[in-house]
């Protein structure tokens, strides 16, 4: 079973990295957003010191979130393309298959995000091995959590792909808007602030910013952030494996 899982993981990774052009394009796209749009918007922001780097850190989290969401949605597409049926007949447990999907998403996330993170650290004059590994570790943990969430939601897709798409699109966008990805908690008020404080993306973004030396008065508490990220990863892993073993084939597995 281990060998099959490994083969599956290699197959998935090869598929995800088969287009050098696309991976390069995604890095260029990051560069464009950071250096062009980030610089423009920094011109307008007056009350956040070093907003350019603040923006860069948010962009890293946003990109990582998008990759993790994509890896989760990919699984749903498998179901609709018929590939899932094949995967389910392989000699691997549902749980192991779920872990393999998570592992694939995390590896893709790390490979795709390492250069952008290095660029943001370098622009901030804080590119050290410790900072790079630290930020990648945060992203890896948060990728597990986000993928676990998306894979858990995939149960919905077996009922209706449209409802799944709508919920995932809404959830993704709301998670981004009601968070500190683009603006600090101090600029928010009322319901927006309350929702943002319950949003894991707030803690992921702010923990990353702590590595970048952003004024901590603008950020959520770091210890609390680590606890939220770890809890999200463990929680969604359990939730995902539970859903996977019970619902994916439509009957309770033995």
């Amino acid at each position: 079973m281990k060998k099959t899982l490994f083969e599956l993981l290699i197959f998935d990774l090869k598929e995800s990295f088969n287009s050098v052009v696309y991976v390069s394009y995604s890095w260029l796209y990051f560069g464009l957003q950071f250096f062009a749009y980030g610089a423009i918007i920094t011109n307008l922001v007056v009350s956040v010191h070093n907003y350019f780097i603040y923006f860069g850190a948010g962009l890293v989290v946003l990109s990582s979130f998008n990759i993790a969401s994509w890896a989760g949605r990919r699984f749903v597409e498998f179901a609709h393309e018929g590939r899932l049926k094949y995967l389910l007949c392989l000699p691997v447990s549902r749980r192991a298959l779920f872990i393999e999907q998570i592992a694939h998403g995390v590896i893709v996330n790390l490979v795709r995000m390492a250069p952008p993170i290095a660029v943001v650290l370098a622009v901030n004059n804080s590119l050290t091995t410790f900072n790079l590994l630290g930020t990648l570790a945060i992203l890896a943990l948060s990728a597990i959590g986000i993928m676990g969430l998306m894979l858990s939601l995939s149960v919905l897709a077996f009922k209706s792909f449209d409802i799944y798409s709508a919920i995932v699109a809404a959830l993704s966008a709301l998670l981004v808007r009601f968070s500190t990805i683009n603006y600090p908690l101090s600029a928010m008020s009322g319901a927006i602030k309350s929702i943002s404080m319950a949003n894991p993306l707030t803690y992921i973004s702010d923990l990353l910013r702590a590595f970048l030396g952003i004024d901590t008065s603008l950020l959520a508490n770091q210890s609390y952030s680590i606890a939220v990220i770890v809890a999200l990863a463990i929680g969604t892993l359990f939730l995902g494996t539970y859903f996977m073993s019970i619902y994916v084939e439509g009957v309770k597995s033995t």
């Binding site: 009350s47 709508a166 699109a169």
Partner: peptide
């Protein structure tokens, strides 16, 4: 569902991002 989702996202852009950015921007 999808349409409502898309519209509410655009609205949240206007109301959330627009409002919050107003507080930290010069315009």
């Amino acid at each position: 569902w999808l349409l409502l989702t898309l519209i509410s996202l655009n609205l949240s852009d206007m109301l959330v991002a627009g409002l919050v950015y107003t507080k930290i921007m010069s315009i």
